[in-house]
């Protein structure tokens, strides 16, 4: 099976390499990209979409189809990680470590021993003993709300400044990963369960594709947001701006959830019990 996969990868790579020869050379003035497309974007971009940040306009509107499949690729990566790594069978029982919170005394409970109830007095700690560090813990907890606010700002201000769904989503995912690093994986999966990350990642992509298909249902082309003008009660130019915002929200949700999902799977080798 592995050999067939290897041959498939080789063949696919050969096809990609072969097709790369038919690209126009770099900086060719007669290449399609240099003939009229860029000039059109620069001249008419602001007029047609009411988005001052040209990069966002090109990414989410003019080349929205491309971006939709970029988000799909990320979702596919997350799902592939899940299928490859996730293990539901429990690890064979070994001894567990518990810390008495007030004194810091560590209890090692051998296999079959009576475990303390997870209460206010004891907390379970990782097998690869992660030391309790008040400074790191509190500093991370202090920073996370600001970081999440900044992530939302990057997503929603993508029309006017550098940013957008991908960048903001990655920042948001990094905040949850920061929590997981500074505390432990179990408490983080209680805050942000695997189920939530799986749901949000598909829901984000659904928002993107749904916006595109809503345009189709309203009698326009796929991802031509000006068709949403009647639905949003604005003129077609502003409708394109709002459509870009909807799409960016979808991308942000999907990317942040997939970042977290991939981290969970990689950090705990698919077991979700112990890890960084």
């Amino acid at each position: 099976m592995k050999r067939f996969a290897f041959i498939g990868v080789l063949l696919f790579g050969a096809v990609l390499l072969y097709s790369s020869f038919s690209f126009p050379p770099l900086g060719d003035p007669h290449a399609p990209a240099n003939r009229h497309v860029s000039d059109d974007y620069i001249r008419d971009g602001m007029k047609e979409t009411a988005v001052p940040n040209l990069v966002t306009a090109v990414l989410a509107d003019y080349r929205g189809y491309d971006t939709m499949f970029e988000a799909t690729v990320i979702l596919a990566a997350g799902i592939a990680c899940f299928f490859l790594l996730r293990r539901y069978r429990r690890k064979p029982a070994q001894h567990r470590l518990y810390r008495h919170i007030d004194t810091g005394v560590i209890l090692i409970i051998e296999q079959g021993g009576k475990e303390p109830v997870d209460s206010k007095e004891f907390e379970r700690i990782d097998y690869h003993w992660v030391p309790f560090d008040l400074v790191v813990n509190k500093a991370a907890g202090l920073m996370v709300p600001f970081l999440q606010l900044f992530a939302l700002y990057v997503i929603f201000h993508g029309h006017h400044s550098p940013g957008g769904g991908f960048q903001g989503g990655v920042i948001f995912g990094a905040t949850v990963i920061l929590l997981a690093i500074s505390r432990d994986l179990r408490s983080t999966t209680r805050l942000f369960p695997e189920r939530t990350s799986a749901f949000l990642s598909s829901a984000g992509l659904f928002i993107y594709a749904g916006t595109g298909f809503a345009c189709l249902l309203l009698g326009s082309n796929l991802l031509d947001y000006s068709a949403l003008a009647r639905l949003l009660a604005v003129d077609p130019v502003m409708a394109r701006s709002h459509g870009i915002l909807l799409v960016e929200i979808g991308v942000g949700m999907a990317v942040s959830a997939i970042m977290i999902w991939i981290y969970y799977n990689l950090a705990s080798a698919g077991r979700y019990d112990e890890g960084l």
Partner: peptide
Amino acid sequence: VFIFITSPTATHAMADAGMR
């Protein structure tokens, strides 16, 4: 302000990890 919070924390964490 934010660097004043995070940078000493990072330094502390690295020194702590080295000691441990």
